[in-house]
Write a protein that binds this DNA or RNA. Structure first.
Length: 906
RNA sequence: GGGCGAUUAGCUCAGCGGUUAGAGCGCACGGUUCACAUCCGUGAAGUCACUGGUUCGAAUCCAGUAUCGCCCACCA
């Protein structure tokens, strides 16, 4: 049982509660503690698996908070809610981390060799994996830990092999020599997505090539063609010079040969449309093995494509003195040599976009390699159909445009990586070059083409892009390719929540692979969160040192506060800044809730025994405040349901925050305090009041639970429960929408306004806050019963006592004295005269100031309202309800102005 | 070169066709009333970036402009 005598300390509350949930086995949808209704469809979220070598950052915490919110809501609604946790082996990222550690030990990938390196990686990963999992627990994610998965576990390995084999058989995976993005720093190819275009100022060198005299086969004196290049080292790989076919400057040279410096190779001058005559010199060197455009050009013209770079980015195989130099060293040397030869025509600064490796920041070199590719166009077509048909929805909707654009122009996906940590590509090659793809764990028995024995086959040394296994995540985690019970029950999943920054990397790949391999959309909704930024709006990064550790935040303010802060005021797809102010706001809210509950529990009338079974408040004994509370709870529940249905989670927190703080605590508890202490009331009334507080608080705890699971669970335990309630809030039912009582809402709102106006009048006149002041007041007959029921509370909240009620406005006017403060609520529906203990000129002047201010304000609104109603089109075209409301408003303002004028003239 | 987003109170952000545009923080003034000073009360503070248009009515819809940010793109 939660000890409410103590002050709220999140740390004490949270640790114990997670253990209770685990012990009760409520996380698994089929766990012993589940209260799910098997007739309802299941609700599944497969969490984007965090990197196994990483540590939790705010982005992870946000992800878990949002996903867990949806999961807990679905669970309370009675769905079998599966929140499947996982870890990603993060091939290249993990190797990057481990390589850094090895470097400090004087070791390297090469020094260890593949087997020892992988052994070392497995040890490393074994130590890091628990860190991330423990952190996910602290955030409060209600994961089904019994279904924990890992992208390098056996299930994933099988899924990867089977997926690849099926793609191969469907001719959607192919092996070919192609230009790939090579990162010399990482010694692997990377996908187009991992190349980051970086604007930089380079140099555009103009170099004179010598044209060959066909008669002598030697450079013709005086005949040259000047090419422009930003990468002079690639001269060594040139196999042509291209000009535009319609460029008159070069027409005569087309078809001639030109000598490539240093390489001493004579290559043709060709004509091709790709050349822009206006750029540079209008003549382009063609290096088919190291440039995307040139590669295409080379294919069109049947050019050779010599590779001039080694894996580490050094020049190799050119037979020149540059062999062995790093590419940038070679560049400098070549420029110097060209200049020495008198062939450097110009060198001008040039703004350009350089492709850098997302991981190592090294400059990526296009390079020819024989690798595996996924044929994406047919897959993308199906993915596009999924969103176009609405079978899968992307939120916020605007990202569908980005999605469309990318999938429409998609290029084939290079999935081979020359790394070690990851899933080995299940392709074997026989000495004759035949390819055998097999999903068998032990590999094929024989070459699929020529039947050579397995011993003669060599497996491809490469591994898959880490996103290949991630792309299978929604179904590989549920047992696919086997037709398991989990797969049948929980696939397709429901919502895929992730950051918009990996929509292509991951979401698109899951969609493409999911549709191809399972024939279903892997989820019906993609919810894209924004990124978390620091208080200055900068992206959080280790190098900037502005990364916030969620665990530190949780230690300080609690996971509930962290979750609330991350969800409150955020909208999907929009970045949000995160700082101490938001966290403090959230923690204060948790504290408020704690104290409110403490009050309710402590306010139990003595006639109700401790531990009494929950009772619905007896409708006959409810006062207006109680009915108001119940009606407001119904309205809030309805609004929260609407917000949940539209994934407006920031709106959910706003609604519940306001209902709890500004309605329940500010007014509900204050009204109740008076009524619970009112000796003139019967036992039934006092009990009904208390049961109302319990009932409404119970509703709000349920509504808030998905956002702040720990504190709500702890507090709920301190409230009496219904017989049908489970032991834990996490598996309790989401509240139904109760009945609205609009009449009582209107009346109570008026009386709340009255208290506010009296307080305002007193504060404006600078009367001591603690004074009880004699007050005369007029309340219309129809409001009478409500007023009388709340009179003791109004007296106390307004510190207005004695409170003398007059029967008519005229009687009030006659009884009021000069010096009394004038209070007019809602155009005079309620009026009051508050009598200061002493009158002085200062107070009188302040009072006149206030009334004058009120008057001019009211006059402004009134003239606006009249203008509006004077507009013929408004009256005839606007909906009747709007016009009626405007008329009522005008009438009210007219009264207000009249009364204020009257009062000021006296 | 395309595309997207943002621009609302001093700051951080909600709101995205209907009376007087909201919150938190900050600010000013006042509070030791038995849930909470992680609190309570009162208040000040905004031509909703700009220009046009649609509409009875626009912060909200449309078009354009400006500034900032992001994504995509093979011009050497």
């Amino acid at each position: 049982m939660t000890d409410l005598a103590k002050a709220y300390t999140p740390h004490d509350v949270e640790g114990a509660i997670y253990e209770r949930w685990l012990a009760a086995d409520v996380f698994a949808p089929d766990g012993s503690g589940s209260t799910a209704d098997p007739d309802l469809p299941p609700f599944t979220i497969i969490q984007p698996p965090p990197n196994i070598t990483g540590s939790l950052h705010l982005g992870h915490a946000q992800r878990t908070a949002v996903e867990d919110l949806m999961i807990r809501h679905a669970r309370m609604r009675g769905h079998r809610a599966l929140f499947l946790p996982g870890l990603d082996h993060a091939s290249i990222a993990a190797q990057f981390v481990l390589d850094g550690i090895l470097a400090t030990e004087g070791e390297s990938r090469e020094s260890l060799g593949r087997d020892r390196y992988l052994e070392r990686m497995r040890e490393f990963v074994a130590t890091t994996r628990e860190v991330m999992l423990g952190q996910q627990r602290r955030v409060g994610g209600s994961f089904d830990w019994s279904r924990l998965r890992y992208t390098m576990d056996e299930g994933s390995a099988t899924a990867v092999r089977v997926a690849f084999e099926r793609l191969y058989r469907a001719d959607l995976a192919y092996r070919t020599e192609a230009l790939v993005n090579w990162c010399p720093g990482c010694r692997t190819s990377v996908s187009d997505l991992e190349v980051v275009g970086t604007p930089e100022t380079g140099t555009l060198w103009s170099v004179r090539y010598h044209v060959i005299d066909p008669a002598t086969g030697r450079p013709s004196p005086g005949e040259t063609i000047t090419i422009a290049t930003t990468r002079p080292e690639t001269i060594l790989g040139d196999t042509a010079v291209a000009v535009h076919p319609d460029d008159p400057r070069y027409t005569s040279l087309v078809g001639r040969l030109v000598r490539i410096p240093f390489a001493e190779r004579d290559v043709p001058i060709i004509a091709d449309d790709v050349v822009d005559p206006a750029f540079g010199t209008g003549a382009v060197k063609i290096t088919p093995a190291h440039d995307h455009d040139d590669h295409e050009t080379g294919l069109r013209h049947g050019l050779a494509a010599p590779t001039i770079l080694a894996d580490d980015g050094s020049v190799a195989g050119t037979g020149t003195r540059y062999d062995g130099m790093d590419r940038f060293e070679a560049r400098a040397a070549i420029v110097a040599d060209v200049e020495a030869a008198g062939d450097l025509v110009a060198a001008v600064p040039h703004e350009m976009v350089i492709g850098r490796c997302q991981r190592s920041n090294d400059i990526v070199e296009p390079r020819l390699k024989t690798q595996w590719f996924i044929r994406t166009t047919p897959l993308a077509q199906r993915a596009l159909e999924a969103t176009r048909s609405g079978r899968t929805r992307i939120l916020p909707e605007r990202f569908e445009k980005t999605w469309e654009h990318w999938l429409t122009d998609i290029r084939d996906w290079n999935v081979s990586r020359q790394l070690w940590w990851g899933h080995r590509i299940p392709a074997w090659y026989c000495p004759d070059g035949h390819v055998t793809v097999s999903s068998e764990e032990a590999g094929p028995d024989a070459c699929a083409v020529c039947g050579r024995a397995a011993v003669e086959l060599q497996q491809d040394p490469d591994i898959f892009d880490t996103w290949f296994s991630s792309g299978l995540w929604p179904f590989s985690t549920l047992g696919w390719p086997d037709d398991t019970a989990d797969y049948r029950t929980y696939y397709p999943t429901s919502v895929m929540e992730t950051g918009y920054d990996i929509i292509f990397f991951w979401v698109a790949r899951m969609m493409m692979l999911g549709l191809q391999l399972t024939d279903r959309e892997p989820f019906h909704t993609v919810y894209l969160s924004g990124l978390i930024r620091d208080p200055l709006g900068q992206k959080m990064s280790k190098t900037k040192g502005n990364v916030v550790d969620p665990l530190g935040v949780i230690d300080e303010a609690g996971a509930d506060a962290l979750r609330f802060a991350l969800i409150h005021g955020a909208t999907p797809g929009n970045d949000q800044r995160f700082g101490p102010a938001k966290l403090e706001h959230a923690r204060n809210f948790a504290n408020k809730l704690w104290n409110a509950t403490r009050f309710v529990v402590g306010a139990r009338p003595a006639t109700i025994p401790e531990g009494a079974e929950r009772r619905l408040p007896d409708a006959h004994h409810l006062g207006p405040a109680e009915r108001w509370l119940m009606s407001r709870a119904a309205a809030t529940t309805k609004a929260v349901d609407a917000a949940m249905a539209s994934y407006a989670f920031g709106e959910v927190t706003r609604l519940v925050y306001e209902a709890i703080w500004n309605e329940y605590c500010d007014w509900g508890l204050e009204f109740a305090k008076v009524r619970l202490a009112d000796e003139r009331l019967g036992q039934e009334e006092r009990e009904a009041t208390w049961w109302t507080l319990v009932e409404v608080l119970d509703t709000y705890l349920r509504l808030l639970h998905p956002v702040m699971p720990f504190v709500t669970e702890a507090l709920w335990a301190a409230l009496p429960h219904r017989v049908t309630d489970p032991d834990l809030l996490i598996v309790a039912r989401w509240p139904g929408v109760g009945e609205a009582d609009l009449l009582v809402e209107r009346d109570v709102t008026l009386l709340i306004d009255l208290v506010g106006e009296i307080r305002n009048a007193r504060a404006s006149a600078r009367l001591p806050a603690s004074d009880w002041l004699e007050t005369l007041l007029y309340v219309p007959v129809e409001l009478g019963p409500t007023f009388e029921a709340l009179r003791p509370a109004i007296e106390r909240l307004a510190r207005a006592r004695p409170l003398q009620r007059e029967l008519t406005p005229e009687a009030l006017g006659a009884a009021a004295r000069p010096g009394d403060l004038t209070v007019i609520v809602a155009g005079g529906q309620i009026e009051a005269a508050v009598r200061p203990k002493t009158t002085d000129d200062d107070a009188g002047a302040l009072e006149r100031d206030r009334l004058t201010r009120d008057l001019s304000e009211a006059e402004g609104w009134l003239s606006a309202a009249r203008e509006r109603l004077a507009n013929e089109s408004f009256v005839s075209r606007a909906p009747a309800a709007v016009v009626d409301a405007a008329r009522a408003r005008e009438a009210e303002l007219t009264d207000q102005v009249e009364k204020l004028r009257d009062r000021l003239e006296r």
